[in-house]
């Protein structure tokens, strides 16, 4: 029946659009994290210099930088995903309870990054790499278990790269160089992963013939 053929083809269009929205949300979030977090860390580690230049107490500079980094990062990521999930979420997700996967992933990232505060000072930047590696890996696992969307291998590869980068950073003895390398590795991994996701989002839009 022609009408049914039309419906089936239209369903394919809808699925590709949802795939595009999902990947675009991840892409934007990864780029935001890769840009904002290292920037915040640079300000925090150079708080004494900023305090000297501005005349503001160094601890206050650190506190404000830390708060702004968290607020901007989480705010941007939450806004991006909320916009995508509001469009993507299906009736079946609500029935099966798999709409909780978004909350689970947010919790995983929050807990992972919160745990970095327990790390000794000399391991702060390495713990950042570990936390993000763990968060990426658990996000991949949650997506695979809930079957909400095709688990994105880019997230898994990002987890592995961040883990490898942490080993590289640990191998560097000089504290300044290892700190800079750690931040650079974190930033590059996230931003490159974000751009790959964006490219995949654009490919998802295109008709597969």
């Amino acid at each position: 029946m022609e009408a049914l053929d039309r419906v089936l083809e239209a369903l394919d269009v809808v699925e590709r659009y949802e795939d595009y929205l999902f990947r675009r949300a991840w892409g934007r979030s990864l780029i935001a994290i890769g840009t904002l977090f290292p920037l915040g860390m640079v300000i925090i580690t150079n708080a004494d210099i900023l305090a000297y230049l501005t005349g503001i107490d160094a601890n206050l500079v650190r506190l404000v930088a830390y708060a702004m980094t968290i607020v901007l990062c989480w705010g941007l990521v939450s806004y991006t995903f909320f916009g995508a999930w509001r469009t993507i979420k299906k009736e079946s997700d609500r029935r099966e309870g798999s709409s909780l996967h978004g909350v689970l992933i947010a919790l995983v990232w929050f807990v992972s990054f919160s745990l970095t505060s327990l790390a000794p000072e000399q391991l702060t930047l390495v713990s950042l790499l570990w936390a993000s590696s763990l968060a990426c890996f658990l996000s991949f696992v949650i997506l695979r278990l809930t079957h909400t969307h095709d688990p994105e291998r880019v997230i898994l590869y990002l987890a592995l790269l961040l883990g490898l980068a942490s080993i590289l950073v640990l191998a560097i003895e000089d504290a300044t160089i290892s700190g800079a390398t750690g931040l650079l590795a974190f930033s590059i991994c996230f931003i490159v992963a974000g751009f790959i996701m964006h490219r995949q989002a654009a490919q998802a839009l295109r008709v597969s013939r």
Partner: peptide, 8 residues
């Protein structure tokens, strides 16, 4: 633009 790409 998204619509154009989706429908080819």
């Amino acid at each position: 633009i998204q619509l154009k790409d989706l429908l080819g």
